[in-house]
Design a protein around this nucleic acid. Structure first.
Length: 278
DNA sequence: CCATATGTTAAAAG
DNA sequence: ACTTTTAACATATG
């Protein structure tokens, strides 16, 4: 996925291009992405309303909705999660894709998808009264859409979490520090690539038990997380991180030249520099 | 056919 | 009971 930076980009796209456009029709027939809603349930709840705001915490997004013509009471929130490969595509009344907001890099964002010719990968669609659309385009089909999503178990957003709060949340428990970073209830928004980038920037081994890190090391981790997240948002995605292109066999650390090593940590493929990350 | 993939989560294990 | 690890999910791609 779409990690925090890509989700922020998608959120910004919705905010810039999809708000205050009355919804005329909804395709919610993908029973996997829309579970546990029955087909038609989301449609019935949204037709006649508009999206009025787009929010994000970690990798989760949700939109507020307006009242209807006959009832000004706001509607349910529309939760959208991009899963492993989801993208938000918004078109205008003329059918042209809105430019500039959504991510374009990395394994699943790279060009060549030709979304308009691959409608089979459109898992959820809002059609606006003006003729335009908002689509969740998702090859892997692990994204999800739901009404009034429960985001109460998410930890603080990785972009905004303060030093003391992160030190407190991350520094307890014997699991490897990378597993803690990936745990969305500890801190929300860090995925596999952002975790590797952050640990490389902080010069910490992904395998270190979280509760054996010193305060200084945790502060370093916080600063690295903040910087890596900001940079990725500014530059257009997690794949722009400094160490990401060196996550493969035979690659060398771009700082010290040592050969990068690979192992499974926190359940995910992990690459790090054994020389500097200790 | 096999392995891998930027995520989440239920189930199993400790 | 709480924490940690593993497996499964659905599907594309090399």
């Amino acid at each position: 996925m779409p990690e925090l930076p890509e989700v922020e980009s998608a959120r910004a796209t919705i905010e810039a291009a999809a708000l205050d456009r009355p919804i005329a029709a909804v395709d919610d027939t993908d029973t996997y992405e829309c579970r546990p809603h029955a087909p038609g349930e989301i449609a019935a709840a949204l037709v006649g309303r508009s999206l009025t705001a787009a929010h994000r915490q970690g990798k989760s997004m949700w939109c507020d909705t307006s009242g209807t013509d006959g009832d000004s009471t706001p509607g349910p929130t529309l939760g959208i999660h991009l899963g492993m490969s989801g993208r938000i595509l918004v078109t205008g009344p003329d059918g042209a894709l809105t430019q500039g907001g959504d991510w374009t890099g990395g394994r699943y964002g790279r060009g060549g998808d030709e979304p308009d010719r691959k409608a089979v990968w459109d898992r959820f669609t809002l059609t606006f009264a003006d003729g335009g659309t908002l689509r969740l385009f998702d090859k892997r089909r692990l994204g999800r859409v739901r009404l009034d999503p429960d985001v109460s178990r998410l930890g603080p957003d990785a972009e905004e979490v303060g030093v003391d709060e992160l030190v407190e949340r991350l520094g307890r428990g014997s699991a490897p520090v990378k597993a803690k970073l990936l745990d969305q209830s500890v801190v929300a928004g860090v995925g596999n690539l952002l975790a590797d980038e952050t640990l490389w920037q902080a010069r910490l081994s992904p395998r270190r038990p979280a509760d054996q890190l010193s305060r200084d090391e945790l502060v370093r981790l916080h600063d690295a997380l903040h910087d890596a997240t900001k940079d990725a948002i500014r530059q257009g995605g997690v794949h722009t991180g400094e160490v990401i292109e060196f996550r493969h066999a035979g690659a060398h650390c771009p700082r010290c030249g040592a050969q990068m090593v690979r192992a499974t940590v926190g359940g995910r493929t992990t690459w790090w520099c054994p020389q500097e990350q200790v």
